[in-house]
Simulated scan of single mutants.
Amino acid sequence: MKSIKLSNGRTIAYSEAGSGQPIVVLHGYCGSHRYWDEVVPLLASRGRVIAPDLRGHGESSTGEGIYSMEALADDIAALLDELEIPKANLFGHSLGGYAALAFAEKYEERLAAFGLVHSTTYPDSEPAQANRLKAAETIRAEGVAAFVEGLIPKLFAPDHRASMPEKLKKAIEIGYETSPDGAIGCALGMRERPDRTAVLESLKVPVLLLAGELDEVIPPEKRFPVTKDNVTQILLPNVAHMGMVEDPKAFADAIHLFLDDSRG
């Protein structure tokens, strides 16, 4: 692990492997760079893979308040500045996808290619917004551990909760590393995020929409919000919301295929 102090005063921790074209992967809510442990070695044959811990997660710095998706995007832009990376292939998982969309809206010129992974352009529904508030209340009252123990199993396919006990355990343990302020701040930030379908529609770079067939978090009608010539839609069979963990080879193969196609 490495860490770097950004121009905004925050410290971002990240892992790095490989060399060549920059491939930045952003983890989901109550995750960390460790979500990508099995995927990074597979992607590192194609480029320089950078996996940051988002603000308030893993080993990155935290603080009180609402963590807007725009603020998370600014952290990533500042990290790329420090690493002297003008353009990157950016892939965001779930929460990381929401941050990546905010990045695409603000820093499109810094994208070589863009990917939404088990994520969506659509904002929270009213019930989902209510659940974000409930999540924040639960974390304040009971702590992060109790919250992630309830959350993380729902991210795996039902059969995988039984057949992948070690992977499920690891994902829960990664969740324990999320700071309470980070978990609350991101829950409230996700609650406030706007509809960014228009951002995806306007992007000129190659776009990957990667979804899990069994995902209970992102329903079918929200997985592929845009159909265009520069948009690749891939549905991974037999995985839910954690494709990079549930089937890392198929996940990495999908990204390899997309990157090969995007280079023409």
Rank of each mutant, 00 (worst) to 15 (best):
Lys2Glu: 14
Lys5Trp: 01
Thr11Trp: 00
Ile12Asn: 02
Tyr14Ser: 09
Ser15Met: 05
Ser15Cys: 05
Glu16Ala: 08
Gly18Ser: 02
Gln21Ile: 03
Pro22Ala: 02
Ile23His: 07
Val25Trp: 01
Val25Asp: 01
Ser32Glu: 01
Trp36Leu: 04
Glu38Val: 01
Pro41Trp: 08
Leu42Thr: 04
Leu42Tyr: 11
Leu42Ser: 08
Arg48Val: 03
Ala51Lys: 03
Ser60Ile: 04
Ser61Met: 02
Thr62Asp: 15
Gly65Pro: 08
Ser68Val: 04
Leu72Cys: 08
Ala73Gly: 15
Asp74Met: 10
Ile76Arg: 11
Ala78His: 08
Ile85Cys: 03
Gly92Ala: 05
Ser94Phe: 08
Ala99Cys: 13
Ala100Ser: 13
Ala102Leu: 11
Ala102Pro: 14
Glu105Cys: 05
Glu105Arg: 10
Lys106Cys: 05
Lys106Tyr: 02
Glu109Val: 01
Glu109Ile: 03
Ala113Asn: 00
Leu116Asn: 11
Val117Lys: 00
Ser119His: 10
Thr120Val: 08
Glu126Gln: 10
Pro127Asn: 13
Pro127Ser: 14
Arg132Val: 11
Arg132Thr: 12
Lys134Ala: 15
Glu142Gly: 05
Ala146Tyr: 10
Phe147Thr: 06
Leu155Gly: 05
Met164Phe: 07
Lys167Ser: 15
Glu173Phe: 06
Ile174Glu: 06
Thr178Lys: 09
Ser179Ala: 08
Pro180Val: 07
Ile184Asn: 10
Ile184Gly: 09
Glu192Gln: 15
Thr197Ser: 13
Leu200Trp: 09
Leu200Gln: 14
Glu201Gly: 14
Ser202Trp: 00
Lys204His: 13
Val205Ser: 01
Val205Pro: 01
Leu208Val: 05
Leu210Val: 00
Gly212Ser: 09
Pro219Glu: 04
Glu221Ala: 12
Glu221Phe: 12
Pro225Ser: 06
Asn230Val: 03
Pro237Ala: 14
Ala240Phe: 11
His241Trp: 06
Met242Ile: 03
Val245Thr: 13
Glu246Val: 05
Glu246Gly: 09
Asp247Lys: 14
Ala250Ser: 12
Ala250Asn: 07
Ala250Phe: 00
Asp253Leu: 03
Ala254Ser: 15
Leu257Gly: 12
Ser262Asp: 02
Arg263His: 14
Gly264Val: 01
